[in-house]
Write a protein that binds this DNA or RNA. Structure first.
Length: 384
DNA sequence: GCATCCCGCCAAAGG
DNA sequence: CCTTTGGCGGGATGC
């Protein structure tokens, strides 16, 4: 019975918060729900139910996650969990594919100008196809008439990622991406739609810490920075559902939503601990990255191990004024790596660290020194 | 006001 | 046919 709807719970019934329903958050919850060793099969309805969202949204996040190797579709309504350890492999494949595509098509252009310095490059149009779809650009799945697939979220995600994997620029502005991601922009509405998708994708990739939203140095235009290769703290993410477990009802978005039985986000550790202990979590990924890198350029044999350590202290000097360095250094803390597997207990713990880290990070980036272009471009550069 | 992007209609893919 | 997937874009929310 129950379902009194009115009066709801005792506590503050927050009007309606969009943020609580973002794809990013959903993704985080999804991860914390399935990121354990004993989970191999995931049912979409179950996920939708557990997370209290309509199924449509599950498709959204699952598609982008799959594109990055965290999941695999096994059958109808069934996915199997791979975990973050699957990311390196997926990225490797994507990169190879990307390079292959690029070599086939003459392509390319200088579309992706690095925000880096580059004052205004007024060399606008150069020729421009002017035709509506100009396949010439970057990667585009051939798939003949499969128009549907070409526009799938998954495909878009992969193209988006490829974009980072091929260029040595680690930051791409929003519209640059939109433009590159599929013919250019001639059709305004089409462009708008594309951007919407981009936001969707960006949200979930962000929640997995593969990218970060930022803005171009001078222009201040929104942009995304690739974090996937460096030992950013990734994996397990948070738990969300800030206020209380109410949130259900809320304009009937599923029918009866039910559950959503999150134990009140464990507030346990909102400790202000600095990310100095993040390394624990980072190891896995780090190890994987190293492995991948080795494979990619085994001949080269360089391993981007230790970074140039720079004063890590984040706000020591207060607006230390210089971009370069910092913000990316703390991760060097986690440079010591040792292969090991994670268990649920750990990842659970990690979730909390991450949360703390996130708040810290945003504080730093938004607060003062705006993160600028990190300087390590060497990491994954091409080797075509 | 514009940047974000949630929501859910409804049409393609299965089965 | 029904169900599962998932484009797509209106329009609400955030800032």
């Amino acid at each position: 019975m129950a379902s009194p709807c009115f009066l709801e719970s005792e506590d503050r019934h927050q009007a309606y918060s969009r943020k609580q329903k973002s794809l990013g958050l959903l993704c985080s919850n999804f991860v914390s729900l399935y990121n354990r060793d004993d989970v191999e099969s995931i049912s979409l309805d179950d996920a939708a139910k557990q997370l209290g969202v309509e199924r449509r949204r599950i498709y959204d996040i699952v598609n982008v996650m799959e594109s990055v190797g965290v999941l695999t579709r096994k059958a109808k309504n069934r996915y199997s969990w791979i975990g973050f350890l699957g990311i390196p492999k997926a990225l490797e494949d994507l990169k190879k594919e990307a390079l292959r595509d690029l070599s086939q098509h003459p392509v390319d252009d200088q579309c992706l100008q690095v925000s880096e310095d580059e004052e205004a490059n007024k060399s606008i149009d150069h020729d421009e196809g002017t035709r509506e779809d100009k396949p010439s650009n970057a990667f585009h799945k051939e798939s003949r008439s499969d128009n549907r697939k070409e526009k799938s979220l998954g495909q878009l995600t992969q193209n988006f990622v490829k974009l980072f994997l091929t260029s040595d620029a680690d930051t791409v502005s929003l519209d640059e991406a939109a433009r590159l991601l599929l013919g250019d922009c001639n059709n305004l509405t089409q462009m708008k739609t594309r951007v919407r998708r981009l936001y969707d994708i960006a949200n979930v990739l962000s929640s997995m810490n593969l990218i970060e939203k930022t803005q171009q140095a001078v222009t201040k235009k929104p942009a995304f920075r690739w974090l996937g290769n460096r030992g950013k703290p990734d994996m397990s993410v948070t738990v969300a559902i800030p206020p209380s477990a109410t949130q259900m009802k809320k304009r009937a978005f599923g029918s009866d939503i039910t559950n959503l039985d999150f134990k009140r986000s464990r507030t346990v550790s909102y400790v202000d601990r600095k990310p100095d202990r993040l390394q624990m979590r980072t190891e896995d990924l780090k190890a994987c990255n190293l492995a991948v890198q080795k494979q990619l350029q085994n001949s080269k044999g360089y391993v981007f191990g230790p970074f140039q350590p720079v004063g890590v202290t984040r706000d020591a000097g207060k607006e230390g004024n210089m971009d370069r360095a910092k913000v990316n250094d703390w991760e060097s803390l986690a440079s010591s790596f040792r292969p090991q597997y994670h268990n649920q207990a750990l990842s659970d713990l990690f979730a909390h660290y991450l949360e703390a880290w996130k708040s810290w990070f945003s504080e730093v980036t938004q607060g003062k020194s705006s993160v600028q272009q990190p300087y390590y471009k060497s990491i994954v550069n091409k080797l075509s």
